[in-house]
Design a protein around this nucleic acid. Structure first.
Length: 385
DNA sequence: CTGAAAATAT
DNA sequence: TATATTTTCA
């Protein structure tokens, strides 16, 4: 952050080529290393800033990334052969990337207003092949620090803009990182706070919707994203420039969801709001829960509750005719003590006759959520709200 | 607020 | 193509 500013005073941006040339003239290898590191760092900072807009600035990302990789190669070389001259040519793929990057530095924000939607055709791929780094193989299976969920709560973050926080903070390897290739010394492009500006004037904006990246550890409290609820004014059909960051339902989150759901009496009787309250997850919104619930219900309905007891009615929605009643009590009376899916007392004691056996076949899931179907490799958690 | 469906993003 | 999530609608 501040780095980029003050360093800029000391460091006059130059093209990578020039930089390398200059580098080669340095006698002191340690100095070279430090210069290189500094440059790389600058590039990385830059990249992080742009990360948010990678869709709109794919080329910038590409260029930056390329530059970083090459410089890192250099760094490696320097480290390796402490004294060998470092002279390779650095030929940016197309030409000058520094020019571009510079300008970015200055107006990366303002340029945002110009993005035309049409070029998010391709995304920039992260093939992080940084020179010598090897992927840090699993340290242990899931080292997911049980710091479950949670984005900090800032639901009403209107159009505020969250300053860059330490991204890559608490090492949580988010169960969701799509690709967390190496990391060690390079903050690379892991997490990024969405941070969108307030800029973007509604008036002429071409519908720029898109851009979001989902990552972040659960423990992290970063969030950025806007929720802005434009009221009405006259421009009826103008939607917010950015779409809400997708909420990633990590296994942890899902688990809580299910638990809450069950405490409330099952998929059919629990209401989104109640669930959300029970979950006590910080930045979670009703809509998100509602949505998840919708999906959950569908899945539950789809697969044959395994029990098969009934005549296998894919079509028969379980007859929860009588037992609905239970819903009410659970909420107020018993705060959530037991988080386990245990069955709640089913009312039918006295008359018993009822056919309640049917219900409750539903949720069984694997404790680990996300298993309903299988797929879902990408889960992140993240920023949010 | 809810649930369902359409729209999108992945 | 299928699925996950968001947004829109009733």
């Amino acid at each position: 952050m501040e780095l980029s500013l003050d360093t800029s005073l000391v460091f006059i941006p130059k093209t990578i080529s020039d930089f390398l040339v200059q580098l080669s003239t340095m006698e002191d290898s340690s100095q070279r290393s430090s210069e290189l590191d500094a440059y790389v760092k600058r590039l990385e900072d830059e990249m992080r800033k742009i990360e948010v807009f990678k869709r709109e600035l794919p080329l910038c990302m590409l260029l930056l990334k390329d530059a970083i990789e090459r410089l890192k190669d250099k760094v490696m070389q320097c480290k390796k052969m402490e004294d060998r001259p470092v002279i390779e040519e650095f030929i940016p793929l197309k030409g000058n990337l520094e020019g571009k990057e510079n300008s970015d530095k200055k107006n990366w924000m303002s340029s945002a207003q110009l993005w035309s939607t049409s070029l998010n055709v391709f995304e920039y791929s992260n093939h992080d092949s940084v020179s010598g780094l090897r992927l840090r193989n699993v340290e242990d299976d899931r080292s997911v620090p049980e710091n479950p969920i949670e984005p900090s709560n800032n639901r009403a973050v209107g159009r505020t803009f969250v300053p860059f926080k330490e991204q890559y903070e608490s090492g949580f390897t988010g169960t969701c990182l799509k690709d967390d290739k190496e990391v060690s010394q390079v903050p690379s492009l892991s997490l990024m706070t969405p941070l969108m500006s307030e800029a973007l004037d509604a008036s002429t904006n071409t519908n720029i919707k898109s851009n979001n990246n989902c990552r972040g550890g659960s423990g992290s409290g970063l969030a950025g994203q806007l929720k802005l609820q434009n009221k009405p004014q006259q421009q009826s059909q103008q939607q917010q420039p950015f779409r809400k960051q997708r909420r990633c339902w990590s296994p942890e989150l899902h688990r809580r969801f299910v638990e809450s759901l069950q405490q409330l009496g099952g998929t059919q009787v629990a209401t989104p709001k109640q669930i959300r309250e029970l979950m006590q997850v910080d930045g979670l919104t009703n809509d998100e829960v509602k949505s998840h619930l919708q999906k959950y219900r569908l899945h539950v309905r789809k697969l044959p509750t395994s029990s098969a007891a009934k005549g296998n009615g894919i079509w028969m929605p379980l007859d929860h005719s009588a037992d609905h009643s239970k819903a009410n009590n659970s909420q107020s009376g018993s705060p959530q003590g037991p988080l386990l899916p245990g069955e709640f007392a089913k009312g039918r004691s006295t008359t018993g006759g009822e056919s309640d056996n049917s219900r409750e076949a539903e949720e069984d899931e694997k404790s680990d959520g996300q298993s309903w179907k299988g797929g879902l490799l990408h889960n992140n958690q993240g920023g949010d709200v």
